[in-house]
Structure formats: structure tokens, C-alpha cells
Design a protein around this nucleic acid. Structure first.
Lengths: 237, 237
DNA sequence: CGACGGATTGATCTGCGTCAAATCTCGTGG
DNA sequence: CCACGAGATTTGACGCAGATCAATCCGTCG
């Protein structure tokens, strides 16, 4: 089947034995295509399946009182989007597609089986949920300590690094279906100000974005500006 | 020994069998007292032990380029502070005490044993690391979507709810060794502005804080102001 | 008593939000 | 093939929340 080709790719994938991988593949109970801007899971409902993202972009978010979104995560191919829903039993946030996606669904009873039989795989699944937590921490840092330009730069540095790990970025170009409003929801800013910051990054010769395509012109400089250190992504370990 | 008396208290503690609890207690290899403002773990170093907090307050934080701290978590009694270091093998942030603490240390080899033998306990340990991730998400929301008063209010609502779960708050009063500068580092604000917002909360009759003692005067109103919904803490489930 | 870290308050500055309008892009149907 | 409309992007003018700078006050401890 080869659904999990990108899972933990360029991270600890070598620790995944072929038996573990087979067991993981066998636990998939459905594969689906989902259109863009489509809700996948709603906060507080008990859930019994988790979603693995084969292709596309998915976000997780929370709404404030007025219904304004705050994204808390953006996922790309190879991410087990809401595996944390397995130990938690329900989610504390909503999940939705950004662009069109291809996803695999895994029932929690199947994961129970894996946890019972495969301590090594269990540790890797656990690891993958903690990668998300590490990204959350970096988002806290981004929102708490960086100014507007650096926030936007940092956001794209993260996306680029994640995409590169699954060979969807060559370090210069990648496609990314987010609107400026989406980026604003991720960075805690208005879309108007995102627009100005993108202009600034463009004029400084660091990066530009048009029609769902991002071009990074000077990655080292962009990372420096954004205080971006990719070690929290555990890539290449 | 009864070291883990507060672990997952008022959460899923009933799912912890007495054998699991015994195995957990047996895996502790040292108990220590640590003074206030003391560093416990440093970013990027490989680690082989995790820290369980028996008593006191601990924070996790990251520094920006100029060395200004951003807290990413505050821990209280009953928290397994850096259990996530077990699957990750190293930390992406620093850990330090806020006030004086009593901690228990658990070697990762001991946890390996637990993961191999005790799937149910493993799932609960996993769960506890994901509680931290849920709190991270709430911090992202706080920084991204709330204004200054609500940020401070939300922060204290969280601390209060966590302390109440281990009976260190009665819903009205609790002690909390954080300075206004610490709170600023948690909320992404300056200590000056924290001071003004505490004044505002005091004048509105919602809460006040003096010499390490917090008094909540109107919890429902404070929660309303701060858009605080404790369900992400999974208390009482 | 003096010193020092933390709390408090005032004055001023600025980064980003808000509001509003213009332009661009692309899908849809006549 | 063009007209239309919805959504996304871009730009300008203006206001304000929170930062910054700086001075004073307070409580604790040697």
C-alpha cells in the first residue's frame, strides 16, 4: 500500500522496522480525498479515529469569542494530524483542510493493538505527537517574542523545513495553498499586516509568494531575520 | 513511597492500576530538593532522565536572540515536567525552577521497561505529555487572540485550575511564587504592563496578587473576561 | 540602617490594528 | 469569448494598545 511512505521521513524512520511499518499500514481502515476548506473534526466530540495526512495541507485551530480563528498547527504530507486524539479521547480544537487533501483513517482500537504488541512503534508514535508539541512551543515563542516581519519569516521557515523533509521543497520553491488571511490566523496578525510584511520580505530580497507558490530567495538571511533554528523539528536525526 | 500521589490527580488517575503505580514508584532513582531560580535542564543536550515535580513551581522557556525569555510552560505539583524528553531524547528548550522545589528523577531505561511491560501505563504517560501539548495550544491562543488584560486573566485561570486539581487552590486563594516579570515572560508582555493589568484586574474586583499569594475574587467573571474554558485541562474526566 | 530586588506610576513613542477603497484573479455561465 | 461576481491582494489614512524610558516607592534581609 505504501500509505506511510512519508511518516517520520528524515527523522527516526530508520527506527521503524518493516514489521512495524506493515502493522501500521494494516491498521488503516480507509483512505479518502477531501476538498479544500473542509472540516475534519470538531472540538470536544469524543473521537475514535485518527487522521494521517498523505497529501495536502491541514490546519488545527481554535476560535475566540467572536469566532476569529487562531491556527495552532499546520500539517503537511507525512504528518499524523490528530494522533494525539488517541490518548486524549477527544480534541480540544478543530481540524480542517486548507487545500485539497488525501488522508488515511486509523481506528483507535487498531492503535490499541499496536500499543499492546509493539513497544518500539509505540515510542515512535508517541515521538511523532511530541514533535507537534515542540512545534507548538516554537509557535508560542514566535507569537511572544518576534515582531511582525520575523513572525511571518519564521512561519515560512518552518513550512519550508517540514516540506523539505518529505521532498516537497528543494529549499527554493514549494507550493503552499494558504491565503494571506490564513497566515494571519497562524501568526496572530491581520491579513492587512501580513500583506505589508510579505511586501517587506519581497523588497528585502528574502522571499515572495504568489498564487500558492512560495519562492525563498535567501534562506540563510530569512532564518537569521526570523531567529529560526530548525533543531526543534528533529530533522536528520 | 507515595511520590506520585498527585500524578494525573483528578484526571485519569482511576485508570492507573495499583500495580502500574507501584511500577512507576519503583522506577524513581532519586528525590531532590532544588532551590528557587535554579536551572534543571538545558536545551539540545541529550538527556537520560526525566523530572517529576513533587512540590513547587517549575517553568520551561526559550530565549530570543537578546536573551529575553519566553516561557512555554509552567508546572505545578503532580506534573511530569519533561517526560517528553524520553521519546525525544533531547529537549528543545530550557527548564528551571521558579520557587524552591522537590523533584523525583526517573531514568529513561526505567521508562523503557514500563513501555515494554505496561501498555496501559504507557498510554497514561503518553496522555500526560499530551496534556502539556493541549496547554501549549491554549498558550498560542492566548498570545495570538487575547488582549493584555485577558492574557493575564487567562494565565491565572489556568494556574488556578491546575492547582485546584491537586488541592493547592480552593478556588479563591493559592500561593504562587512568580514575579510580575515572570508573568510577563509567560504572556509575551513587559513587566510594566503586567503591573498595569494586575491593577486593572484588582480595580475590577476580579483578583489580586501580593507577596506570592493570589486571591481570586470573582472566578466566573475572570473566566468570562479571559475566554477561559478549562476543558483542555481534562480535569474531572 | 542601608541595600537590593520587586512593584508602581507617569510621559512619550511606535508597531500594528482598523477602516475603507481600489485592483487583481479566477471560476462560471451566457 | 467576454461579462460578471466573489474572493484575494494591495495600498493609504488614522488611532490606540502596549512598549520604552525613567523615577519613585516598598518590603525584606544582612
Amino acid at each position: 500500500m505504501a500509505i506511510f511512505n512519508d511518516f517520520l521521513r528524515d527523522r527516526r524512520r530508520d527506527e521503524l522496522s518493516s514489521e512495524d511499518l506493515q502493522a501500521l499500514e494494516a491498521s488503516v481502515h480507509a483512505v479518502q480525498n477531501v476538498p479544500a476548506r473542509h472540516s475534519l473534526a470538531i472540538s470536544k466530540q469524543p473521537i475514535g479515529v485518527s487522521t494521517y495526512l498523505i497529501e495536502g495541507f491541514i490546519c488545527r485551530y481554535m476560535d475566540d469569542r467572536e469566532g476569529v480563528r487562531q491556527l495552532v498547527a499546520v500539517h503537511v504530507a507525512g504528518d499524523f494530524v490528530d494522533l494525539h486524539g488517541y490518548p486524549l479521547k477527544r480534541l480540544d480544537h478543530d481540524v480542517a483542510t486548507l487545500g485539497p487533501c488525501r488522508i488515511a483513517l486509523v481506528r483507535h482500537e487498531a492503535i490499541d493493538q499496536l500499543v499492546r504488541d509493539r513497544p518500539n512503534l509505540t515510542k515512535l508514535l508517541w515521538f511523532s505527537t511530541l514533535l507537534d508539541a515542540a512545534m507548538h512551543r516554537e509557535w508560542i515563542f514566535r507569537l511572544g517574542r518576534l515582531d511582525a516581519v520575523a513572525r511571518v519569516g519564521h512561519f515560512f521557515c518552518e513550512i519550508e523545513a517540514k516540506l523539505r523533509a518529505v521532498e516537497l521543497s528543494d529549499g527554493r520553491q514549494f507550493s503552499c495553498p494558504l491565503t494571506q488571511a490564513d497566515i494571519g490566523e497562524a501568526c496572530g496578525m491581520t491579513s492587512v499586516h501580513i500583506n505589508r510584511m510579505l511586501k517587506e520580505l519581497r523588497e528585502r530580497g528574502l522571499m515572495h509568494m504568489q498564487r500558492g507558490r512560495v519562492t525563498i530567495l535567501d534562506l540563510p538571511a530569512l532564518r537569521r531575520l526570523s531567529e529560526f533554528d530548525p533543531s526543534y523539528l528533529f530533522i536528520g536525526e
